[in-house]
């Protein structure tokens, strides 16, 4: 029984990590209907950016986070403004293949600069500390921090979306970009801002990932799949849905892993396939797919 409680809590906390992976993708998919195949590679890029900064600046990973967020936001803004905005239109192939091209470019540039070695970030004792909850039950401090961060990031984005003028602009552009232009909204700039925001969240995901585990330049695609599955399970345009999607994925993997060590990742994929077979639009869709 306590065993299963541990599995469940591990799953939920792993889910927090997945939710962090997925939030950036959920933003770009929700606002621009853009599936960014390079999303996972951006997470890895952020992780390596932090790794590269920590030593020369002699700062901890958490102190490096704001710098990485700024860098990634700038990178995302330019990526959207210079390249991805040109792919928007009725043909879904173009954004898919252009971001796929970027995925290959980012992976191989990282490989060239950092070699194929796995690297991580050291955040000190917080990584191994745990909170005993009585009996054999304990919760790691770091996974708890990840989950708390995921919830607060999504809470903050929710506030931005529903309480600010910028959020209103995002939602209007997501609903109908043509009419949005008739309101004086420069949709291309809005998209670039959305990508900057998504990339800042990607930076959080990347830094947290590198603290939790070692990262290699070709890890991006697996991160993308997790992120995409969480978004699809949760439903398009719903940030809380994305959080719950991440949780479902995390629990499914933890349970699968407990039953047989080889089947952890598969059970996550199977959970995703099960959800999309039963509810192709996800569990809590808010926005209609165009």
């Amino acid at each position: 029984m306590e065993d299963w409680f541990n599995t469940l809590s591990q799953g939920l906390l792993l889910g927090g990590m997945y939710a962090l992976f997925a939030t950036g993708l959920s933003l770009s998919f929700g606002i621009m209907r853009l599936i960014n195949v390079a999303h996972g590679d951006l997470i890895v890029l952020a992780a390596f950016a932090a790794i590269a900064l920590v030593e020369p600046l002699a700062i901890g990973p958490i102190a490096a986070l704001p710098i990485v967020m700024l860098l990634m936001a700038g990178f995302g803004y330019l990526l959207q403004r210079l390249f991805l905005n040109r792919t928007l239109g009725d043909d879904p192939l173009r954004p898919l293949l252009v971001t796929f091209g970027f995925s290959i470019i980012i992976q191989n540039v990282l490989l060239e600069v950092f070699s194929a070695d796995m690297r991580g970030l050291d955040a000190g004792t917080i990584e191994t500390a745990s909170l005993p909850l009585g009996g054999d039950v304990a919760v790691g401090v770091y996974p708890l921090l990840v989950a708390a961060t995921a919830v607060s990031v999504i809470g903050a984005l929710q506030w931005l979306f529903y309480r600010t003028a910028l959020g209103r602009t995002f939602r209007a552009t997501s609903d109908d970009h043509r009419t949005a232009q008739l309101m004086g909204i420069d949709n291309r700039r809005v998209y670039a801002l959305a990508m900057a925001l998504a990339s800042a969240v990607v930076a959080i995901a990347g830094v947290y990932l590198a603290i939790r585990t070692s990262v290699g330049p070709s890890d991006g695609p697996q991160r993308l799949l997790c992120a995409f599955e969480a978004v699809a399970i949760g439903g398009l345009g719903s940030l809380w849905g994305t959080l719950s999607g991440g949780m479902i994925l995390g629990v499914a993997q933890a349970v699968g892993l407990k039953l047989d060590p080889g089947w952890g990742a598969v059970s996550g994929h199977l959970a995703f396939l099960l959800v999309v077979v039963l509810r192709p639009n996800g569990l809590f869709p808010k926005t209609r797919d165009r």
């Binding site: 003028a165 209103r168 602009t169 939602r171 209007a172 609903d175 309101m183 909204i185 345009g237 926005t287």
Partner: peptide, 15 residues
């Protein structure tokens, strides 16, 4: 805009 309320629709015009 379907995901905006009536008032938000009006406000987006003013923005």
């Amino acid at each position: 805009f379907p995901s905006l309320s009536v008032e938000e629709n009006l406000l987006i015009g003013a923005q």
